[in-house]
Design a binder for these strands. Structure first.
Lengths: 205, 205
DNA sequence: GTCTATAGAACGATAGAC
DNA sequence: GTCTATCGTTCTATAGAC
């Protein structure tokens, strides 16, 4: 069944290239994923790639856009609402973090991020702002509200956020490493909930 | 001034190669640190490298040996002694972890580890056993003793260790990233102590 | 938009003179 | 043990025919 769209153009080679590139970059890194390998996986010649992208760097940048494109779907009003109930706030946050951790596409992106983290300054800066500071900010807001409502003991919200987030990150890294070698990450799956329980017991009034 | 040793041999080129390789591998990764660049930094020709090492891989393996060669200087008897006093155990552990984090040579090794973590299966396995499981084991022993002595509340020692270690790792990663871009990691320096304090308050009886 | 053909550079590694 | 010279491979990228 072909679409009846007027814009038929061709077989969407550009999308194929991006998909193949994502897979290869996230397995072999920028240097390891050669233009040859990408073209071969798409099923075309190297030269044909250059009809769709200016150069290899441009392909990478297009792929890399996807790394930080999965923001948490917690807006300001929801933060307040959840944080006023205490534990549900960190439960919701953790559930979303866990979902990203085990999502196939996000897993690829996280792998790519970790591979290129020390090779690409821009990626490093985005990691700091999007992966770290952004999450610290959301969590801090929540903890601050909990303190105002006397749900948790008095602490520096940033410090609490750091403590809470670091374990989530470490679990995500471990899941990524295990699954990269096709090992089971089942035992880590329940650890997300254990983390929430332990942390909540540590801070609650 | 030349040494009077009978074994003069030469100018220790092998050591120079290893030093230059360490610097380059930990900045550019395995692929990025070419044999040419290594030779250039040492001040010899590529071909001369092969008088000291069979190939590039052999140089890398020699360098990589250093990654996991800084074991914690806490032996079994010391674990018991410190853990029976409670907080001093995690203080000592954290101080050693912090020392490694800020040590120039260990910083290079950690950088190399993170760069190649997803590209090198053997490194990944060593990371899991030497960086993760080994630390979890030492910490678990300590927490178990604390529980026996009713110094801390009852919990799964492994879970406690995981919670405690993950934050240390995250701080180390952040320090490494900041310093790689010549940024200050001063604000993170005090965070190690804050982590110990917060964690101890969370678990103590 | 795809192909063949090829350029030009960088790569790891070796042979052989000194 | 170091050098020069060179090999064969792989890389990104371009020119031009179809």
């Amino acid at each position: 069944m072909s679409t009846t769209s007027i814009f038929v153009k061709n077989t969407g080679t550009k999308e194929k290239i991006l998909k193949a590139s994502t897979a290869l970059f996230s397995e072999l890194g920028y240097k390891g994923a050669s233009v040859r390998k990408i073209a071969a996986q798409v099923g075309i010649r190297e030269s044909a790639l250059y009809n769709h992208f200016k150069n290899k760097e441009e392909i990478f940048l297009e792929v890399a856009k996807g790394i930080f494109s999965s923001p948490f779907s917690i807006d300001s009003s929801q933060i307040k609402e959840l944080a006023e109930r205490g534990k549900p706030f960190i439960q919701k946050f953790t559930m979303q973090y866990k979902m990203l951790t085990f999502d196939k596409n996000n897993e690829k992106m996280f792998r790519l991020l970790m591979i290129e983290l020390l090779q690409n300054k821009e990626l490093r800066e985005q990691f700091m702002s999007e992966f770290h500071e952004k999450n610290i900010k959301v969590l801090s807001e929540g903890f601050f509200i909990m303190m105002q409502n006397s749900l948790i003991r008095s602490h520096d919200p940033m410090m609490l956020s750091y403590e809470f987030l670091s374990t989530l990150f470490y679990m995500r890294l471990q899941v990524t490493l295990l699954r990269f070698d096709s090992l089971s990450a089942d035992s880590l799956s329940t650890q997300f909930e254990k983390h929430v329980d332990f942390f909540w017991e540590s801070i609650k009034m």
